[in-house]
Amino acid sequence: MQTNETAEIMRRFNQAFRDHEPAILKDLIAPDCVMESIQPAPNGTRYEGYDACLVFWEALAKDPVAHFDVEDTITMGDRAIIRWRFNFGDGESVRGVNLMHVRHGRIIEALGYSKIPGQSAPLPE
């Protein structure tokens, strides 16, 4: 797959959330898509198959209060990294990334990872 095709799929994927247009997602998800959300910490939730991924993403895209700010999208062949900030509630947000994989013009894998506010690992000495 060409990087340009992957970039266009990621553009449309991000647009669905930015514009609160869940219908955009219907043509972007592969039948065998696997998605891992960031909640609950530490390992998130795994969703398998078109219907499960679509239901999860549609709910996010429909939410009139919460929204994503895409900070950067990097594409490399059939893979992409989306760096984002998810805004929710009363000015609260969390930053994270999605590691995306596309095959035959559809998303087959979307793994979400986020920073956990207020927690940090000890630095090595």
Rank of each mutant, 00 (worst) to 15 (best):
P117K: 07
Q119N: 06
G91E: 10
L99H: 02
Y50R: 10
V94P: 03
R95E: 15
D78R: 00
E109K: 03
I108M: 12
K115N: 14
R85Q: 05
T3N: 11
L60Y: 03
W57E: 04
T75C: 15
L111F: 08
T6F: 04
F13K: 01
M35W: 04
E58Y: 11
K26H: 15
S114D: 05
P117T: 12
T3D: 09
S120H: 13
R12G: 02
R46K: 15
L28Q: 00
M1W: 09
L99T: 05
E109W: 03
A110R: 08
A66T: 10
K115F: 10
G49W: 03
P122W: 13
Y113V: 07
W84D: 03
F13G: 00
H67R: 03
P22D: 10
I29A: 03
L99R: 00
E5A: 13
Q2E: 12
H20T: 05
Q39K: 12
Q39N: 14
A61Y: 06
G91F: 10
I82Q: 06
N43G: 12
A61K: 04
P117L: 06
G89V: 08
R85V: 14
P64A: 04
H101Q: 13
G89H: 07
V97I: 15
D32I: 06
Q119P: 04
I9A: 00
K26V: 15
Y50C: 04
R79L: 00
E5W: 07
K62N: 14
E109G: 02
I107V: 13
Q39F: 11
F17C: 00
I9E: 06
D63M: 06
I74G: 00
D63E: 08
A80C: 05
A16P: 03
D69P: 07
